[in-house]
Amino acid sequence: MLAPSLSAVFFLLVIPVCFVVVYSFWLRSPYGADIPAFQFGNYAKFFDDFFYPSLLIRTIRVALETVALCLVMGYIPAYFFYRTESRLKPFLMILIMLPFWISFIIRTLSWINILGDSGLINHLLMKGGFISAPLPMLYNEAAVLMGLLQYLLPFMILNIYVSLDGIDKSLTEAAKSLGCTEWQAFKEVTLPLSLPGVSAGCLLVFVLTCGTYLPPMILGGPGNDMIANLIFKRIVGTLDWPFGAALSTILLGLLGVIVYTYNRYLGINQIFKTLQ
């Protein structure tokens, strides 16, 4: 019964990913097929020029920024879903999941309509007479973050909400009957119990940010590329497959270490629970 799915994942995922690692040691040949080899030239190339490691560092920095902003923007709405008794709750929950159903590329490019020179914000500011020339808001890191956040915020909100939803509300009542204020009850009871969802959300957002190239490509400028952009350019653009494979291996290794460490101490099942 497991044979079809296992062989699909084995032949189409496990072997190809292992093959990427193998390929990263091969030699690039400008003509025809790359040459099988075992040498570290592709990795040496990565560490020789500070440009490449700096992309990796930027990726990690942007991913951490995204995680932090997702937390700030996501915890309160998740808490709202947990506490609200509004009849609109199911509707609002569906609304927060709607972006999942909209293509990533549309969500990304939609920010051009908002931040662009003739986008909504500039249009309103100019019409109101606040500025005479459009403010340049696109093609910088802030624009990239907008795209990333809009893509990832629902993941964070849902992870936190699932965790909050599992908390017995009588615990807060108990804390309050023992003299806690609303805020103290939240700080001492609700917040600590919601941490599994918070950390699962953070991990998911971090991993997904590191693996994406669309927001930097569409909303970012030349200085906003992340590691996935470099992979895309090397594989699809310059056809430098061995180097692209080495870059993929480095990214995979980095995320592997993070996910492994996370799983070791916190357990990864929380994420799968939420995705249901």
């Binding site: 994942v9 190809p16 995320l255």
Partner: peptide, 20 residues
């Protein structure tokens, strides 16, 4: 293992299958 594709960056998934 079967749920692994969720945690593997999509860009790597793309590269892997293409190289294969």
């Amino acid at each position: 293992l079967l749920l692994a594709p969720i945690m593997i960056p999509e860009v790597v998934l793309g590269v892997a299958l293409l190289i294969f």
